[in-house]
Nucleic acid binder design. Structure first.
Lengths: 89, 89
DNA sequence: TTTTTATTTAGATGGTTGTCTAATTGTTTA
DNA sequence: TAAACAATTAGACAACCATCTAAATAAAAA
């Protein structure tokens, strides 16, 4: 699920945006040359992958980054990394 | 390209296999309930993403892991990680 | 309560992906 | 050189994906 979510340039850019601060769906959509339903769909996929969290605040829905899944992915990737050599002695 | 390559369970399992040692295409294919052309296709995608390298050895083609792209991906992911907080003070 | 604003959901469409079978390429062995 | 072996390439097809427009939901404002 997280790999699927990351396999799209728009979604990766959304994550970069949210790295700065939480934003509403509309605010996020302003950064892209794409309709709001499309952005909404991307946010849904990011949410399903637990990479972002959504919280309704009155009329708006505020999206923010959730780093716990990133940490899990990092742990998986470290298995393949050159920085994981146990036999460096 | 690397995200696309990682967005498939079979390809991720191939990487896990190659983590142990380099293997020939046929040897890799034996681990999966799938035709050899399909595995060949997955190896091609992994190769395009520079996650594996291919070297012909006579009748066989030996595949091995290439960790440099993994390191680049790790660096990108670290931006989002909780292990990257600069303001821990 | 009616209207406006913010966002999502539904449905359609063109493009991409994973898998298969059949054919092809490259190498070794007889 | 012909036959056998290892692997890839080509072509087809169903399933999935990103995007769009139109409609629906939810909350606030008038």
């Amino acid at each position: 699920m997280v790999f699927k979510a990351l396999n799209d340039e728009t979604r990766r850019q959304i994550l970069e945006l949210l790295r700065q601060r939480p934003m509403t769906a509309g605010e996020i959509a302003e950064h892209f040359d794409m309709t709001k339903p499309s952005i909404s769909h991307h946010l849904d996929l990011l949410n399903q992958a637990l990479l972002v969290e959504a919280e309704r605040q009155g009329k708006f829905i505020l999206y923010s980054l959730n780093v716990t899944v990133v940490d899990e992915l990092l742990a998986w990737l470290l298995k393949f990394s050159s920085k994981n050599k146990k036999d460096t002695k």
